Amino acid sequence: MDSLVVLVLCLSCLLLLSLWRQSSGRGKLPPGPTPLPVIGNILQIGIKDISKSLTNLSKVYGPVFTLYFGLKPIVVLHGYEAVKEALIDLGEEFSGRGIFPLAERANRGFGIVFSNGKKWKEIRRFSLMTLRNFGMGKRSIEDRVQEEARCLVEELRKTKASPCDPTFILGCAPCNVICSIIFHKRFDYKDQQFLNLMEKLNENIKILSSPWIQICNNFSPIIDYFPGTHNKLLKNVAFMKSYILEKVKEHQESMDMNNPQDFIDCFLMKMEKEKHNQPSEFTIESLENTAVDLFGAGTETTSTTLRYALLLLLKHPEVTAKVQEEIERVIGRNRSPCMQDRSHMPYTDAVVHEVQRYIDLLPTSLPHAVTCDIKFRNYLIPKGTTILISLTSVLHDNKEFPNPEMFDPHHFLDEGGNFKKSKYFMPFSAGKRICVGEALAGMELFLFLTSILQNFNLKSLVDPKNLDTTPVVNGFASVPPFYQLCFIPV
């Protein structure tokens, strides 16, 4: 009986604490739906499609509103004006990374994606500088992407125009580009180590996009005490870190300090320079996690976009025909596509942009946080508050993009057929937390897609009208449904 009384008292205290925290903070924060004790607004949000729920709530509470995930307040920004004001106009104040408990377990605050403060700034600055020195957006990395595009075309030829699921092959190409940047090595598509790495990356994007992960991140005790797919994700990350550590040891034994070959060499050189400046942010643990982040951000996002792009091109054969006509006119058949071609191919450029806009790969991006107490639109948001960005509300804005739910390359073309930029184009987020590999991803999408369409016609196994382009999961990332196609050599 005594234990029951204690339990009831504990629960009562928890409920009172929950109510007090919510009521004391709500006077400062933007308005929002009334949260339930302990669980907050979790029942009012469709976990399978958070973005749709945010759109519905914005119609009631406006472009800036507050939700509670458990006891934790989260300020939501919906629509271009609110997102721009926060991420661009007040970029420094909104540059923090929001709480992501599962990532905390995986990387302990290291790396480039989930770190904060001085650690994040130094690692991000170093990573950007190193990638630029190796030619991100310049010639040397373009050579690597072109080489991988040629290998991709050869792998597709091996399908002999038979029906195939493109998931694996389209994942190999961007993964190999990242391998060449980090390890100075590309792998054969049949290499077992490479296959294991690909498998872990593919599993992780599916797990991260599941409703279960949303629950884990908002009720963090689940991570330590409950079984579930989150444990598989943590094991996959541990596998990748151990693999990278092996490569780091190989580099330490063979590195030429006067001739760095890749990202690992550059990081080890930085560690050597910083060894007298303790404590340094440049450690082996930081290198492991930064490399894992580059793999995660640079492989599955690009391969998922490529997979979605081919599905949309199957669905819209008239678009595919126009792209192939432009390829034939500008590039021809006797040389590989290059980035200089893009400025002469406005329709193809528009298609690449429209694919990214339409699929809305990361509907709410990753959570941000404010780095200080900030007054925002007459609300006071306390330091450390998590900020949720609705990228969907920007990419699918119906004023900027008429009929935003329709796939239409003319969203990025003017009346004369010239490519038209849009400030609403934010597939990689915006501001200080914009994806480090934005330029690389854009290069890969253009070169891989043009190389495929230069060499193959795409054949659907069903009537294009019957192809479903609805994402199968739409949590962290929008993942396309399973499909097969035939690559018919031109």
Rank of each mutant, 00 (worst) to 15 (best):
L4V: 13
V8Y: 12
V8P: 14
V8R: 07
L9W: 13
C10Q: 07
C10I: 11
L11P: 08
C13T: 13
S18V: 15
W20N: 15
Q22K: 15
Q22T: 14
S23T: 13
S24N: 13
R26D: 11
K28I: 12
L29Y: 09
P31L: 06
T34E: 07
I39R: 05
G40R: 02
I42G: 07
L43V: 11
Q44R: 09
I45V: 10
D49H: 07
I50Y: 12
S51C: 11
S53H: 12
S53L: 07
L54H: 05
N56T: 13
N56M: 09
Y61E: 03
Y61K: 02
G62D: 02
G62P: 03
Y68R: 07
F69D: 04
F69V: 15
L71S: 14
P73H: 01
V76F: 06
Y80N: 08
E81K: 10
E81A: 11
A86Q: 03
A86V: 08
I88T: 14
L90G: 14
G91V: 02
R97G: 03
G98D: 13
I99M: 15
I99H: 15
I99L: 13
I99S: 15
A103H: 15
E104N: 14
N107A: 08
G111T: 03
I112W: 08
S115K: 05
K119C: 11
K119S: 15
W120C: 09
W120Y: 14
K121E: 09
K121S: 13
E122I: 07
E122Y: 07
F126A: 06
L128K: 09
M129I: 11
L131F: 11
R132H: 12
F134Y: 12
M136V: 12
K138P: 12
K138D: 13
Q146C: 10
R150S: 09
E154G: 08
K160E: 12
K160G: 12
S162W: 05
P163W: 05
T167V: 03
F168C: 04
C175M: 10
N176S: 02
V177T: 04
V177W: 02
C179Y: 03
F183G: 03
R186S: 02
K190N: 14
K190W: 09
D191G: 01
Q192M: 08
N196V: 09
E199I: 08
I205R: 11
K206R: 13
L208W: 12
S209F: 08
S209A: 11
Q214K: 13
C216S: 15
N217G: 14
N218V: 15
S220N: 13
S220R: 14
I223E: 09
I223G: 12
D224N: 15
D224Q: 15
F226D: 03
K232S: 06
L233N: 03
L234G: 07
L234N: 09
K235H: 10
N236W: 02
A238N: 13
K241R: 09
E250F: 05
M255H: 10
M255R: 11
N258C: 08
P260Q: 08
Q261R: 15
D262I: 02
D262C: 15
D262K: 02
F263H: 03
F263G: 03
C266V: 09
C266A: 14
L268M: 06
L268F: 05
L268H: 04
K270N: 09
M271V: 07
K273F: 07
H276F: 11
H276C: 10
N277S: 12
N277T: 12
P279H: 15
S280L: 08
S280H: 12
F282C: 07
E285I: 03
S286L: 10
L287G: 00
L287Y: 02
L287I: 05
T290D: 03
V292L: 14
D293S: 05
D293L: 09
F295K: 02
T299Q: 04
T302I: 13
S303Q: 06
S303D: 01
T305P: 01
L306Y: 01
L306H: 00
Y308P: 00
L313W: 02
L313F: 09
L314V: 09
L314P: 01
H316R: 06
V319T: 08
V319A: 08
V319I: 12
V319E: 06
T320D: 03
A321E: 10
V323D: 01
E325M: 10
E326A: 01
I327D: 01
E328Y: 15
E328N: 15
C338L: 08
Q340L: 12
R342C: 09
S343V: 14
H344D: 15
H344R: 14
P346R: 05
T348N: 03
T348F: 04
D349V: 14
Q356K: 04
Y358M: 11
Y358C: 06
I359F: 12
D360H: 10
D360L: 05
P363S: 06
T364G: 14
S365V: 12
H368V: 03
A369G: 07
I374R: 07
R377S: 07
N378M: 02
P382E: 07
K383E: 09
T385R: 02
T386K: 09
I387A: 07
L388T: 03
L388S: 03
L388V: 11
I389R: 00
S390I: 06
T392C: 08
T392A: 13
T392Y: 08
S393P: 04
L395Q: 11
H396R: 12
D397C: 09
K399R: 12
P404T: 07
F407E: 00
F407Y: 02
P409G: 01
H410E: 14
F412N: 01
D414V: 03
S422H: 09
K423A: 10
K423H: 09
S429N: 06
A430V: 13
G431M: 02
K432V: 06
R433D: 00
I434H: 15
I434R: 15
C435D: 00
C435N: 00
V436F: 14
G437A: 11
G442P: 10
M443P: 02
L447S: 04
L449Y: 00
S451A: 14
Q454P: 01
Q454E: 03
N455G: 06
N455Y: 04
K459S: 08
L461A: 12
L461E: 15
L461R: 05
D463G: 05
D463W: 02
D463R: 04
P464M: 05
P464W: 05
N466I: 13
L467T: 03
T469S: 07
P471V: 04
V473T: 13
V473E: 13
G475T: 09
G475A: 10
G475F: 09
F476A: 15
A477T: 12
V479M: 14
F482M: 12
Q484V: 04
L485W: 01
L485S: 01
L485V: 14
F487K: 00
I488G: 02
P489N: 02
V490P: 04
V490I: 15
